[in-house]
Amino acid sequence: MSWSEIYLGPGTWIIAVLAGGALGVDSVSWPQVMISRPIVSATIGGWLLGNPMAGMLVGAVLEVYALRHPPFGAAKYPDTGPAGLVAGASYAASGGMAIGALLVAVVIGWGLGWIGTVTVQVRRRVNERIMSPAGALAGNPELLEERHRMAIWLDVLRGGILVGAFLVPSTLAVSLAVGTAPSELGRYAIASLVLGIAASAGAAGRASAFGVRGWPLILVGAALGLLLVWGGLV
């Protein structure tokens, strides 16, 4: 597939931007029903570009990476809503077949997730200004409601801007990898992703474990996965 074969029209771009707004606001501001998880957002991205299966594959890999970042306390975590959409759409636009394109799409999703985190922090600083002074808000509850809703709309805008700005460049970058022929280094590239998934799963498992005593369970889980593979169930 070449660049000329990828069609991302203005209509699709606008729908993607609107979806990006909805996915961006879901993660923290409203309503937190988890459409912002990569497994959903990347599938939506893939669906917008005509290949939800490709989007979901990107989303599945991103999930294994995102699971090691639970939002406990003040921990930083990737903003996966707009990022997943862009990654899933980019991979779907490239045909959703080439393994090299998958590698690039996942890295774009991961990087954009952390860029999204920076924008979340900026928005929190902006909220600080919007929601002050407290005295004025307490004396005028309607103003409090208005400002609170304004803050939520800013989050919608943030998600939309992220998708609007990164969708086209990301699609072009992923398509670059489509025509790349496998080489000797390609073996190490795949091995790198697979080992990355393994390391991420280990760290994610620990995030949900109550202490270190759960380590044999992750190996038992992997053994069960191996049985599924050998049994031809996947």
Binding site: V64, A198, A201, G205, S208, L217, G221, L226, L228
Partner: peptide
């Protein structure tokens, strides 16, 4: 949760 994490990671890696 941990069992699922191990299983999913392995099957996903196999798919890749």
């Amino acid at each position: 949760n941990i069992l699922l994490t191990g299983g999913v990671a392995l099957v996903l890696a196999d798919l890749v």
